[in-house]
């Protein structure tokens, strides 16, 4: 029995290794030909697919084909970062409210809504973002933000034309909505798991409810919140359909402002795979596989960084002994 469970536990590991191996094999011609330039510029140019197929360094490709992942990777990381910045505070407050402040029945109702939100297909959220909330924000809210932001370095990123609702900020907001249920429900379960004793101790010392929440409960679950955020971040990085619908899918160039259209690696792959199939040399598909590999590596890096962070926070931040 033990041997069986051990064998089953290896499956996820094998699956990941298999995915990376196949992506690597597919991407190999692109890695050879795209070289380091793949990471330093932004481009999706199939080249002259109606011309002759040429051979460079042993790799067949249409004349003029050019691929660069920089902008797509930046779009992926930036939109996910915006989502995290928006979703984590909302989620933590929601979790505290559900478990500490709201009457139990109301907490259950809010929890039900969170669960339902988590279950909405991303294409529906994408539709809502593209047809309703994106245009609304772009016409009513973004102009205010762009007007208020000072024209100084860094903050000037928040100025400029606000477009018609497709872009970096809209993508971040839509992604934020999508990861709130993940971060909030995980945080809620963590808050539930905080033992009564330290909280009562805090109250006995004359702390208010808010002070107990801030100084005891939050400190107690701090590492867990980091872990929950990493879960949400991983979801945001890989989200595909919703971003394909609200990002604008701009395949070349990097956004000059937070309102500008972008693309992400996942959205690029899902929208461009069919076009890539028209490249008979297979170079376009290979380049998309290389981009997929970059996404897998970004996700891996986020997970490793998250684990390290959890360990750091866990070893320094706990105010009370764990074994209470």
């Amino acid at each position: 029995m033990q041997r069986v469970t051990g064998g089953v536990a290896v499956i996820p590991m094998l699956a990941l290794l298999f995915i990376i191996a196949v992506l690597l094999a597919q991407a190999w011609p692109a890695i050879l030909l795209n070289g380091g330039g793949f990471f330093t510029h932004t481009s999706f140019d199939l080249g002259n697919t109606y011309g002759a197929i040429v051979n460079t360094h042993g790799v067949r490709h249409p004349q003029g084909a050019s691929y660069g992942v920089l902008g797509w990777a930046l779009g992926t990381v930036e939109s996910s970062a915006i989502a995290l910045v928006l979703a984590v505070p909302v989620s933590v407050f929601a979790a505290l409210a559900i478990s500490e402040r709201l009457p139990a029945y109301l907490g259950r109702v809010v929890g039900l809504f969170l669960g339902t939100l988590a279950g909405i297909p991303s294409v529906i959220i994408g539709l809502w973002g593209a047809l309703t909330i994106g245009p609304l924000l772009a016409h009513r809210v973004y102009p205010l933000l762009a007007h208020l932001a000072p024209k100084v370095p860094v903050l000037s990123f928040f100025t400029g034309g606000t477009g018609n609702g497709q872009g970096l900020l809209t993508s971040g907001i839509v992604l934020g909505v999508m990861i709130i249920p993940i971060v909030a429900s995980t945080t809620r379960d963590l808050v539930h798991s905080v033992p009564k004793l330290p909280k009562e101790g805090g109250e006995a010392l004359g702390m208010t409810d808010w002070e107990v929440a801030r100084r005891v409960t939050l400190r107690w679950v701090g590492p867990g919140i980091v872990g929950a955020s990493v879960l949400g971040l991983a979801r945001a990085l890989g989200e595909t359909m919703a971003v394909a619908m609200v990002s604008g899918v701009v395949l070349s160039g990097s956004p000059g402002s937070i309102f500008a259209p972008i693309t992400t690696i996942a959205a690029t792959i899902v929208t461009q795979l069919d076009s890539a199939f028209t490249d008979t040399s297979g170079f376009a598909v290979s380049s998309l596989a290389e981009a997929g590999l970059v996404l897998v590596l970004i996700t891996l890096a986020v997970n490793v960084a998250g684990r390290l962070l959890v360990r750091r926070v866990a070893s320094t931040a706990l105010p009370v002994g764990r074994g209470v």
Binding site: A15, F18, I19, V22, L23, Q26, G238, T240, M241, A266, I269, V270, L273, G292, L295, V296
Partner: peptide
């Protein structure tokens, strides 16, 4: 693999 990786593909 793309499907398995959850990157999504029709």
């Amino acid at each position: 693999v793309l499907v398995a990786a959850g990157i999504g593909l029709a």
